[in-house]
Simulated assay, not measured.
Amino acid sequence: MVADLTSSDRNAVEHPRHISVARVEWQTVLLTGVIYSGFVAITWFWESLPLILVVVLGGWLVAWHGSLQHEVIHGHPTRNQTINDAIGWPPLSLWLPYPIYRQAHLVHHRDEHLTDPIEDPESSYFTQAAWDRLGSVGKLVASWNMTLLGRLLIGPFVMIASFLAQETVMIANGNRKRALIWLQHGLAVAALLVWVMVVCKMPFWVYFGFVYVGAALTRLRSYAEHRYADHHDERTAIVENSPLFGLLFLYNNLHVLHHQRPGIPWYRIPRLYRRDRNLFVSMNGGLVYDGYLDVARRYFLNPHDDPRHPRHSLPSEFAPVHQESAASTVPVQLSGA
């Protein structure tokens, strides 16, 4: 399908006219205020609300904050990246330092390597060598994690535990830069928990509910975003007709557009997608879902794909050494794919 696009069609998608970036994007500034003020309000008034509502709203805000972090990574809402980074830096999710997320996500945008378990830090695939080392229980967990139900229930735990294990190994091996990032992150987490647990008197397990629900919502977004195809343009999906989750994900459900034009601010994505929908669908080979209910209908109990990447399918005894070391742990697929 990609070959069917003319050069003028592709240029219209990759370099759309009449798209400019404001010096200050006030829509994103307003969104920042809504998210942080909402977080302060829900933690301050949590005892006055039903607990289930508190956890759901808190999880929504944590996931929304992750979408905001993704936005600031790509140069919004100002032209000063230091200011943008300061907006995204507070660690509402607890487990993911913003500088690490930013570095990994920008590497993820090398589209020619999308889904590759060695080159793409947000891949959910395994090399055959890593798969062989999992053992029967690990393979069962990984296979269940390829279903939507598994991704929502155990996906957050798998993602967080795998990421923390990898970071621990890096620091233990003497990575001082990583250790400094974690020191700064730890101080910020401590300050956040003083607010939550001391000032607001919220038990940690309640706030961890925020974190887990937020991670599960993010897992929903990233679940069907990418799958392997021979051409990299066809590895990125589109989830249409999802106004509520579209707002939560800042329209990254229209994901192929984001990968083609990562600098487009969130509030312009729907209009640009509607204008050039046929081009985007042709570009990604028709990988389109009719909302997240369509994703659930197809994959709630069925795997989205084989967890073993087809380009890394050599048995472990034939796998190159660099693949063995690079893919020795469970894929992390950080939240901002």
Rank of each mutant, 00 (worst) to 15 (best):
G263W: 15
V40K: 12
V21H: 04
V196E: 05
D305K: 06
P307W: 09
Y267R: 10
W95I: 02
I83N: 00
G209K: 11
V211N: 06
N253Y: 01
G38Y: 13
S20F: 13
I154S: 11
S242P: 05
P307H: 02
L257Y: 01
G135A: 03
L192M: 13
N252F: 08
W46D: 07
H309Y: 04
A165R: 07
F280Y: 15
A179H: 00
R17N: 07
A22C: 11
I238E: 00
A165Y: 07
R23D: 14
R176Q: 09
V137P: 00
A104F: 00
H312V: 02
L192I: 11
Q333T: 15
R178L: 13
F245W: 09
L96Y: 10
A191I: 14
L134A: 11
H259K: 06
G150W: 04
R219D: 01
R10T: 12
R311G: 05
V29Y: 07
A179C: 01
Q260H: 10
V158L: 05
N252T: 14
M283I: 08
M170C: 07
F45Q: 12
H232E: 04
Y101T: 14
I154R: 06
V107M: 07
V198T: 14
W89K: 08
H232P: 01
Y223L: 00
V56K: 05
L30Q: 14
P262A: 13
L279V: 15
R10I: 14
Q260C: 13
M170V: 06
L61H: 13
D276W: 13
V2R: 10
A326M: 14
L5K: 05
G336E: 12
Y299S: 10
Q166M: 14
R297C: 07
P91G: 08
V21K: 05
L92K: 14
G138D: 02
R261I: 14
R221P: 02
V198P: 08
V321K: 11
V29N: 06
V21I: 12
S37C: 15
D111G: 12
R308K: 09
V330E: 15
H185S: 05
A22G: 11
A337W: 08
L96W: 04
G33F: 13
Y251Q: 03
T43A: 10
R274D: 09
V206Y: 07
F300P: 05
S222G: 10
V189F: 12
S123M: 00
K139A: 03
P307C: 02
I52V: 10
L279Y: 13
P262Y: 06
T43L: 08
H74S: 06
